[in-house]
Simulated assay, not measured.
Amino acid sequence: MSSFMRLVWSIIVLWGLTGAAYAQSATSALQNCLPTRDMQEAVASKSVVAPAFAVMTARRQVPNAEVLRANLCRNSDALVYVIMALQKDGRIVQVMIDGPSGRVKSVH
């Protein structure tokens, strides 16, 4: 499958999500995300683990899934990576990784 077709499929699946609770939790988690420059500064100052480390941790939690998005966001006063992954069955999984420690906080 081409990259373009995977992108189209991902968009279709995202539009098809119907769970209001899931949509609300995903939206609230992504509301306070840092711009790329701020994320780079947080990584450079060693305030958080590298994004690649967070993505690898999420991939271990959701094997055989394609990572669609990884953002560094503020959750209360903590920095967390919010990683969205597409499973082969079409379900989207949100993995939250604690920014400073790199540990999994939740998988939904």
Rank of each mutant, 00 (worst) to 15 (best):
Q61V: 01
G99P: 00
A23K: 12
V82F: 11
V107I: 12
V55N: 01
I97H: 02
I11A: 07
S101R: 03
L17T: 14
Q31P: 07
T27F: 02
Q61K: 06
E66G: 12
P100W: 06
C73S: 03
W9Y: 14
H108F: 14
A78N: 07
N64Y: 14
P51T: 07
L17P: 02
V62W: 06
P35C: 04
Q87I: 02
G99A: 02
R37Y: 05
A50L: 03
A54E: 01
V62G: 05
I12V: 13
N75P: 03
R69T: 08
M39R: 14
V82Q: 09
K105I: 06
M39S: 12
V55S: 00
T57Y: 03
G90P: 00
R69W: 04
Q94Y: 02
L14A: 14
S76I: 00
V95H: 00
D77E: 08
V13L: 15
M84H: 13
K88A: 15
A29L: 11
T57I: 06
R59N: 13
Q94T: 01
E66S: 09
L14C: 11
D98T: 00
C73P: 00
V93K: 13
W9E: 11
A52K: 15
L86W: 03
V93D: 04
K88L: 10
A26D: 09
A42L: 11
A65V: 05
S3N: 07
I92M: 13
S28G: 15
R74L: 13
K105E: 05
A65T: 05
Q87M: 10
L30G: 10
L72P: 00
N75V: 10
K46D: 06
A23Q: 14
P63Y: 02
E41Y: 04
L79K: 05
R69V: 06
Q40W: 12
W15Q: 14
